[in-house]
């Protein structure tokens, strides 16, 4: 083997690409406006009571991490952007269900073993990139969990929006204060997943950015082909070099 030839494959259907970027925008709007709403009462304890599980009662989010300008403005954005967010999410989930892409995202048999192998590789405990298909086990885990966390944030959000008319929903979550708490934690989990995702795309597989824009992916540049860890073996040449001794 001399040099790896480009193996361009069609990776993402246009519906997946459009919903991915629409979701990114809607999520930023929802999180920014949500944090501005949170700042109007940065805590969870009902008046005259305490709340067990929040050590930062009263601490506000930095203004420039928020969106909406003021409470009313943020509420308008939040209650408007929630519709594209939910509808877009349903289109995405409906599509991957009908089109079969869900199979690439559902953890397979041996998921824990595969995820551990991947973590070992990233931590330099193992030397070779584990074999993977479209996504490695850690990615599968993250992409699989994300819609569930998003669903939690939507359902808790509805419970906060209509604490009386849909009071049964809030009651399922332990009441209004707890629904706000779960809503906040779900948002925090979405931030962790999204920021982790963006960092890993840039640090491990920037070529996948092209796949999410044009749909096409050069499989000869995959992290597996490059034996890529975060920030290591980013360039294709290094992968070619690594293969050179085999000649």
């Amino acid at each position: 083997m001399t040099e790896s030839q480009p193996q361009v494959v069609h990776r993402h259907h246009w519906i997946v690409r459009v919903t991915h970027w629409a979701n990114a925008i809607a999520l930023v709007l929802m999180i920014g406006s949500g944090l501005r709403i949170y700042n109007a009462f940065p805590g969870f304890a009902p008046r005259g009571e305490s709340f067990c599980c929040w050590p930062w009662e009263g601490s506000m989010i930095a203004d420039n991490l928020t969106f909406g300008g003021w409470l009313g403005g943020a509420r308008h954005w939040h209650f408007a952007a929630m519709w594209p967010l939910v509808m877009n999410g349903l289109v995405y989930l409906g599509f991957i269900w009908l089109h079969g892409e869900w199979r690439d995202l559902v953890p397979r048999r041996g998921f824990v073993r595969d995820a551990l192998a991947m973590a070992k590789f990233y931590l330099w405990i193992a030397g070779e990139h584990p074999r993977q298909g479209k996504h490695n086990a850690l990615q599968r885990g993250a992409y699989f969990v994300m819609p569930y966390v998003a669903a939690v944030s939507v359902v808790t959000g509805i419970a906060i929006w209509k604490p009386v008319q849909l009071g049964w929903l809030g009651a399922l979550m332990g009441g209004y204060a707890w629904a706000r708490y779960w809503h906040f934690l779900a948002m925090a989990a979405l931030i962790v997943l999204s920021v982790g995702h963006v960092i890993m795309v840039l640090a491990v597989d920037p070529y996948s950015l092209r796949a999410m824009l044009t749909g096409r992916y050069n499989a000869s540049l995959s992290p597996e082909a490059r034996n890529a860890r975060p920030l290591v073996n980013l360039l294709p040449r290094r992968a070619a070099k690594a293969e050179a001794p085999d000649e």
Binding site: L65, G69, W70, H76, F79, A80, W83, K162
Partner: peptide, 27 residues
């Protein structure tokens, strides 16, 4: 960030508020 967003979005926000109100009154 920390702004009210683009002014051109106002008609969309107003539209969403009207639709939300319809839904809320329906609920």
């Amino acid at each position: 960030c920390d702004s009210e967003g683009p002014r051109s979005a106002q008609p969309l926000l107003d539209f969403a508020e009207r639709q939300n109100e319809r839904l809320e009154r329906g609920l």
